[in-house]
Design a protein around this nucleic acid. Structure first.
Ligand code: FES
Ligand code: FES
Lengths: 142, 142
DNA sequence: ATAATAAAGGACAAATTAGTCCGGAATTAT
DNA sequence: ATAATTCCGGACTAATTTGTCCTTTATTAT
């Protein structure tokens, strides 16, 4: 479905969101150990999220990552930042063109699945996730 | 979404289905060239479909592959034969457990998407696809 | 029987993805 | 200033997926 880097990225973003209440920063070490993701790889992925303006980073002691609250980014933004539009664009059977004028036998199915998932990912903002993760019994580690 | 091998497999199966009207066999050369898939790779993938009883093969002159009509296999069977249950099983965010008792924040979304796709793939049988491909203007090549 | 044809299967090569290592740059505390 | 901390970024390695090549085996036609 998504690349491993992407699922790590989603979980990382959710974890950081859940910890960036005030101006608290979370270090890559903590993210990696809490979510059980290789630390150096986590670092690479968080760098991508910084470049995509999803999280903000500061270096040095007490530094780390925090959610970029300026704009409200969504889980979809994380997916697009890491995996690009791969999942959502083009024929899922690899045909050169994907359109309702020239569809593959599963075109309608794929269009529905994709837009459905896209909508739901876009509906889950990271700032909202912060509360959800506390109020509900959701899990992003283990 | 699916591996490349899997999309090749689906298209290959559909092409063979569309050509196995009587007892006609389709060679790997034809499948590969018509669908623009590397021939040796096509061969590998069709071998998998043979092992999974989705198509039948015979060697020698006029040999090739034909749909195994004994049982009515579906596109889902092709997916399961090549990619296994990867797409449908386990947490899409890589958590060790996937259940409604211990869900990740996107669990409900993923469950819906997956079952929806699974149902639609299971509903598309390869023998039916034969007619669909002729009657409708579907495309499995290019 | 022999030769031609076509799938089966194993070993290998290329490409992509996943993951590591380490030196450098920024920030903070002493 | 210095040292400690923490992210950045490039180069590297490992694993997986994708794809090739070539030999063997089964089948058919002559
Ligand atoms: S043509 Fe295949 S998904 Fe649109
Ligand atoms: S727990 Fe993540 S998809 Fe079910």
């Amino acid at each position: 479905m998504f690349s491993k880097a992407c699922t790590y990225g989603i979980r990382g973003a959710l974890y950081i969101a859940s910890r960036s209440k005030a101006g608290e920063f979370t270090g890559v070490k903590e993210v990696a150990s809490k979510l059980d993701i290789p630390q150096a790889f986590t670092s690479k992925i968080l760098q991508t999220l910084v470049k995509s303006d999803i999280v903000t980073s500061v270096r040095g002691p007490n530094g780390g990552f925090k959610l970029n609250d300026e704009v409200s980014k969504t889980v979809l933004d994380v997916v697009l930042a890491i995996d690009g539009t791969d999942y959502f664009v083009g024929c899922a059977l690899g045909l050169t063109e994907c359109s309702s004028e020239n569809p593959c036998p599963l075109h309608t199915e794929f269009v529905n699945i994709r837009s459905s998932l896209r909508n739901r990912l876009a509906a889950m903002s990271l700032s909202e996730a912060r509360e959800l993760l506390e109020e509900q019994h959701f899990r992003i580690s283990g």
